[in-house]
């Protein structure tokens, strides 16, 4: 990674990982996402911002087909990850979710030990041949989750006994442990205090080395701090999408401008 030449890295950073075209989502009669096109780049952090109820979570959950679990939800259009349409009937949503990991708004560790939480994904996907490999996978994931040092002495203590910020980093480690290619995060810091938030943000910046990260956030400062690309949603429309710097300093659409200057909330 580090000895990769600059030219290669620049090229790779321009690769599109996810390509969505004409995506519409309906909850019954509620048209939650309206004809959205977006290209999400590999090894970058893309932020979704917008007022509540504008469909950020809905769109995020389309990317790993978590909306399949909601019976009222209907999706049309095309979402391609690495040129494979994920809504194709040949794609197994269960396999897809191993490739597209997700971290939720509220930390949701299972009522199991820290070790078993992180080993959960690798176990169901059979990623380890033996106990030793599993130990290595768990350690690597916890290190990537920037929580190894805090929990290495109590791996077999229940994860529910940790603080909220630690729990959220466990959940990130748990998602990372299955070696996904994309990591989706739905307001991962909204239940955390400022210190834990700073730790998670730092972590997101590191995760960009290996994954493409999509993060939904309510905080524009957070979007500005962690992301390279920003998408602004409003009432189900993707209003504006581009370089984070451009969106925040020089937005094209008046709705984007009023939102980031605090006039639409």
């Amino acid at each position: 990674m580090n000895d990769m030449r600059l030219g290669d890295r620049a090229k790779q950073m321009d690769d599109t990982k996810i390509r969505a075209r004409g995506v519409n989502v309906f909850y019954g009669d509620n048209h939650a996402i309206k004809d959205v096109d977006v290209d999400i780049a590999d090894r970058m952090v893309t932020a979704f911002i917008g007022p509540s109820g504008c469909g950020k979570s809905t769109f995020l959950r389309c990317l790993n087909r978590m909306n399949d679990t909601i019976s009222a939800c209907k999706i049309t259009g095309e979402i391609k990850i690495d040129d494979q349409n994920i809504y194709d009937s040949r794609v197994d949503p269960v396999q897809l979710r191993a490739k597209v990991g997700m971290v939720f708004q509220k930390p949701n560790p299972f009522p199991k030990s820290i070790y078993d939480n992180v080993a959960y994904g690798p176990r169901i996907h059979g990623l380890a041949k033996n106990r030793k490999e599993m130990d290595e996978i768990v350690e690597r994931a916890l290190r990537r989750g920037a929580i190894w040092n805090e929990v290495k002495d109590r791996l077999h203590a229940p994860a529910t006994g940790l603080s909220g910020g630690q729990q959220q980093r466990i959940c990130i480690a748990r998602a990372v442990a299955t070696e996904p290619e994309v990591l989706l995060m739905d307001e991962p810091c909204s239940a955390l205090d400022p210190i834990a938030t700073a730790q998670v943000e730092e972590l997101i910046d590191e995760l960009r080395q290996n994954f493409s990260v999509v993060i939904v956030t309510h905080s524009m400062q957070q979007a500005a701090r962690v992301s390279q690309r920003t998408a602004f949603f409003h009432l189900g429309d993707l209003v504006e999408y581009g370089e984070t710097g451009t969106i925040f300093t020089n937005p094209e659409d008046s709705r984007t401008e009023s939102y980031i200057s605090g006039r639409i909330g």
Binding site: N64, M66, T69, V94, Q95, L96, R97, A98, K99, G101, M102, F104, K106, N108, P109, F110, P111, K112, Y120, G121, I124, H125, C171, R174, A175, T178
Partner: peptide
């Protein structure tokens, strides 16, 4: 058992019966 447990497990690529067996029933 909170929905977030199910979401967490399904989001990691577990099938529904794996989720029931490994997360819901133990909880």
């Amino acid at each position: 058992v909170p929905q977030s447990m199910r979401d967490g497990s399904l989001g990691l690529g577990a099938t529904q019966s794996e989720t029931v067996k490994q997360v819901i029933l133990p909880a």
